[in-house]
Write a protein that binds this DNA or RNA. Structure first.
Lengths: 244, 244, 244, 244
DNA sequence: AATGAATGAGAATTCATTCAT
DNA sequence: TATGAATGAATTCTCATTCAT
């Protein structure tokens, strides 16, 4: 996995496009509108004081979004519900996010950032492929432990936006899968893993298994520690299953 | 796993309940609407002749729904699109299905019926737990091979309806997972499988892995035979991984 | 004036464009959406019976729109007000018109059609350029006499949609102005009109004068016969003013 | 024309009235809003120093408004766009103008002031009614020559606010029309103009013609000198047309 | 059974205006 | 005076569903 392939594809690409349509049109058209005032997404006020306030508000909105999205799903969630849960006015949300969909993007992005950072920083410390695979499994589930709502958002809600899945999230998933596949390949090269299994199939299977565990956990009782136990056992199964 | 736990819980159970539906539903359903006229769900035409004719139309609608849902996702699909694809009038759909969501239900139900029938009829023929597990894996992926659209509907689109996931599909998934778990339990009892793995965790992992494979296949190039190869390799990995 | 320059530029050009965006997007985007059901604008049901019903509804909406637009102006008019005045549901309006703006288009178009038809059919009957000029003046004001609301819509409300003015109406105005200018040119050629006046300036002046009269009439007391008298007097002034 | 009939009717008269405003206004104005803080309209800074500074800013805003209004139209123009073009903060605009609409008022008022001043000061110097009429024509177009944006604002944008047209501008237009009509009356009294034309109709026709010329010029290529030429020719036509 | 015109509730988003700093 | 982040009312248009034919 090359770092570049993991680097976040900026979803902001479309932003700030001048929008050649007559201004009047812009007035009556809805999405993909670049609003001048907060054109650069999260405002970055100069003073630390101001930044804290703004950051607070953005965070409050994100936290509220996780909660409400997890409860109702993406489509059933009204922006006004998120606003209310965050204690801000409806319009305020649009000072920090371009659209309801971007709220979902942001939740996902933040999480995937952590995953990628981990892989960049922690994996190299592991001695061999099996250790790295176990570390990935621990991490993927560990990142969700204690964050049931977010787990649900990542495993369930995210898929509710077809556009998000196909345009935005898919590349990230693929990058992540590639990273896992790369571990398998390394293991096969060193003889740690059996040769008769396609790294890509194995990677997808592992990811799917983890995702399924997280899904069940999120939709079910979400007991403390359950994910950790599951991670350990799955790692055991996969490592033995992949042994030569 | 008792057979009864696998029997399809009639989805109608929840219907008619005043409004315990998730907000999602309330949002898109007309409130205070008399549903009386179509209260009895699928029409039950009297003569065999009529039934056949009706069945044709119902099937055409279902087939069209698979196609359009897979292409656009559940929420982005307009009932009128399905009607057009099926070559019927918008209103006709409501003679066969109570709502757009029921269309999705029905697709899922039909498929899960096949899975459950298989389990009831074929699994007992297998000699032991490992064979049964391999059979399940073959079957789950085999059922999707060649039906890419349906695979996408089952693995992706289904999750787009929060209500469907939580209220309707979850019990079926659980029944299915229980069936897999039961195989693990049996294997552990006979010493075919290791003891230090929770049957439920293993079952969820296996299901998730299969689901993940199907998802990637459906969203990707969906090559012929790919699912069969994947099934074989995953079965190898899991069987070795679960061996004592 | 060539006939072709007067022929109505079909505003429907944009209609029916497949709209390459993902369907999901279409769902959340507003304008310029081709809705399948009434894709061809006014529905044209087969039977005379049905046609009458549909025609009625479209007409009722147009009549209501003239009234409400004239009273409130374009921007201040809510689509729901028009619907209410027409005695139809809000959504029904969108079965007959793509947008609120198209309602305005349609009012204008219907009127300009009459003007153009008149010019094609009646002007050639007039013996010479002065008679034709007088006929045009009579007609332009005559078409508004007794239709105060429509006069206001054409002279005032139309200008409230910048886009309409610039993109849609301007070409029609220009065609009409060209037609008047052509009369002047002819008169100059036959020696009926003075040579030292630019036909285009004269044409614009004449149109502006008529428009100004109509505007004052529409915004004022709109007395019966006033436009006719004004037409006669203005014709007198312009014809003498243009005489060699 | 009596001076009093031309004196600017204070637009503030209508303000504060509970809500006799056209629906248009109610639609875009926040209801039940206390306007107290800016109740006194244009601020009246104490020291000459401050006034100059304020004047600068007020002017910058007005200049920016002309530009942006002309480009986008009234409704499609966002206050924030004007603020940006003027190089001030959004809120600053409200220190100098009560509302977005008042910006438009002010542009119009400033211009009409010039017209009225001209009429008071220059017309009496003219020897007779025909000379005065020609002077008026020269002036009305002359005032716009070189100020294409302002011409567009006066001839097009102004009409985009129904309320402005009906409540505010109409009296000014009427006063101006009365002034022209008075010239006609005088000419008829001295035998310089024909008797068989209503002074009011003639006045409205003349104004409309000038307005139409300006409109075409503003929306079109706006060539230097074009308005001057047009003024001369129109004056020729009208003077000959009105001759006895 | 079939049709498809009509319905109308619903929600994301915008932007004029305010007001704490 | 000036700022610009925050507000929140308001409205177009969509589309699942109904029902008269």
């Amino acid at each position: 996995m090359s770092e570049s392939s993991l680097s976040l594809r900026r979803r902001r690409t479309a932003r700030g496009t001048p929008d050649a349509r007559a201004p009047e049109e812009r007035a009556t058209t809805r999405p993909a509108t670049a609003r001048g005032r907060v054109a650069n997404g999260n405002p970055r006020p100069e003073s630390a004081d101001k930044r804290r306030r703004s950051g607070d508000k953005r965070d409050r909105i994100l936290k509220a979004a996780v909660k409400v999205f997890a409860k109702n799903g993406f489509h059933a969630t009204r922006v006004s519900e998120v606003a209310k849960a965050a204690g801000v006015a409806d319009g305020t949300i649009y000072l920090y996010f371009e659209s309801k969909e971007e709220l979902l993007f942001s939740l996902f992005e933040e999480r995937i950032d952590k995953l990628l950072t981990f892989m960049r920083e922690e994996l190299p410390k592991q001695p061999d492929a099996p250790a790295r695979l176990r570390a990935v499994i621990d991490m993927q589930l560990g990142l969700l432990e204690g964050e049931r709502d977010l787990a649900e958002v990542i495993t369930v809600i995210l898929r509710q936006s077809t556009r998000l899945m196909k345009e935005y999230a898919a590349p990230h998933f693929n990058a992540y899968l590639d990273a896992i596949a790369k571990i398998i390949v390394e293991g096969q090269a060193t003889g740690a893993f059996r040769q008769d299994v396609s790294p890509h199939i194995a990677a997808r299977g592992i990811f799917g298994a983890l995702d399924g565990i997280a899904l069940t956990w999120a939709l079910g009782r979400a007991e403390q520690g359950a994910l950790g136990r599951a991670a350990g056992q799955l790692a055991d199964v996969f490592l033995r299953g992949l042994a030569p």
